[in-house]
């Protein structure tokens, strides 16, 4: 079963890459590449329906649809993981922003209280 040898490392890579995605340019570029590849692969699978089945037969999957499901599951896993990392980064940025706003406002109030 070639598919097992392909899917299990791919699964692990999807998790590792997605959690290391960060807001880096590399992570952003990777997400874009994956999006484009997903569209292209989808279009190809629609245009040449037999192709998917041929690939499935080659890697030891019964049906082409199953192969498609596996592929989509990997893509979703990566996108969900990398999105959650981005969310966390954004959160830590707005926490710092809110803290600066709070400190600046307190400083201004303190200064005006001193003048009064």
């Amino acid at each position: 079963m070639i598919i097992k040898a392909l899917l299990i490392p791919a699964l692990l890579m999807a998790v590792v890459f997605s959690l290391r995605a960060r807001a880096s340019l590399r992570g952003q570029a990777r997400r874009k590449v994956i999006a484009v590849l997903t569209v292209l692969a989808g279009a190809t699978a629609v245009a040449f329906p037999t192709l998917l089945q041929d690939v499935a037969d080659a890697v030891g999957v019964t049906r082409g649809t199953d192969l498609l499901t596996y592929g989509l599951a990997l893509v979703i896993l990566y996108l969900v993981g990398s999105t959650s990392v981005r969310f966390r980064e954004q959160e830590s940025r707005f926490v710092r922003l809110a803290r600066q706003v709070a400190l600046a406002e307190a400083e201004a109030r303190l200064a005006s209280a001193r003048q009064a």
């Binding site: 926490v95 803290r99 709070a102 400190l103 307190a106 400083e107 109030r109 303190l110």
Partner: peptide, 26 residues
């Protein structure tokens, strides 16, 4: 007392970090 007010709720840890920074600053 000196009041430092978050514009949005940040939670217990966020508030403590703000408090530490305010204590050092003011």
């Amino acid at each position: 007392a000196l009041r430092v007010s978050h514009p949005i709720n940040l939670g217990a840890g966020g508030a403590l970090q703000t408090g530490l920074e305010a204590a050092l600053k003011f």
